[in-house]
């Protein structure tokens, strides 16, 4: 069974996978620490002992990072290609506040929805600084996974499960978008892995929500 620390590390790893690709990514993925963490996670989810094969990047020729970078731009870039969003607000109605009179109050596809405001509040309470490039997307999946990693070190299973249910319930929708766009297996595997992880954790949070962990 994954420890809280391992889950936190898994979240950091998962966040890195969905950040703009950097050169060191593949090397780090091939380290023993990464492999053993992923294999353990997969076993726990009933997915066998194999971590996603394409994390090796062997298919992408001499410069897999460049290929991955191009694919990242195609999938998630704001100006070209599939235009797939990694931002929670865009998958949900903009606000649940019945007092809002904007024509788009219940629309999806927009930034800075309720989810973004809630994440902003959580960062503020935690004295966490959001980098400039994420100021308009505080509910970006990368930040939410990083925050989830912190929760594993501080919160009860019930609280973690609650956060996952509140803020990561849209990941299956993202997975479907990637499938539809014919995304590189790296990203399909990465998001599939995150989806399986949060599903398993959500269940644990829901059924195992007894007693509170000591809060530091």
């Amino acid at each position: 069974m994954l420890t809280a620390d391992e889950k936190a590390r898994f979240c950091s790893l998962a966040a890195a996978l969905l950040a703009p690709p950097e050169g060191a990514l593949f090397a780090e993925l091939r380290t023993e620490a990464s492999r053993s963490l992923l294999e353990k996670a997969f076993r726990e989810w009933g997915g066998g002992s194999q971590s996603p094969a394409l994390f090796s990047g062997e298919e992408d020729g001499e410069d897999p990072v460049a290929a991955l970078r191009a694919e990242y731009g195609r999938l998630f870039g704001p100006r070209e290609g599939a235009g797939i969003s990694l931002v929670e607000s865009t998958y949900k109605p903009w606000t649940a506040d019945g007092e809002c009179r904007m024509v788009f109050s219940r629309s999806t596809g927009l930034l800075m929805g309720d989810a973004a405001l809630h994440m902003q509040e959580l960062y503020r309470q935690s004295a966490l600084e959001v980098p400039e490039e994420f100021l308009s997307t505080p509910d970006h999946l990368v930040l939410e996974l990083e925050f989830l990693g912190l929760l594993y070190r501080s919160a009860s299973q019930r609280q973690v499960g609650g956060f996952i249910g509140d803020h990561l319930d849209w990941v299956p929708g993202l997975e479907a978008e990637l499938e539809k766009a014919g995304a590189h297996p790296f990203y399909r595997d990465a998001v599939g892995m995150i989806r399986r992880f949060i599903e398993s954790q959500k269940i644990k949070g829901e059924v195992g929500g007894h007693g509170e962990k000591t809060v530091h």
């Binding site: 950091s12 890195a16 060191a24 966490l128 959001v130 990083e146 070190r153 530091h216």
Partner: peptide, 20 residues
């Protein structure tokens, strides 16, 4: 995992390892 250091969020909670 070196990769875990690539975080975007910054703040004392990251080093203290706990949220308030």
């Amino acid at each position: 995992l070196k990769i875990s250091r690539r975080g975007f969020l910054k703040g004392s909670a990251l080093t203290a390892g706990a949220l308030s």
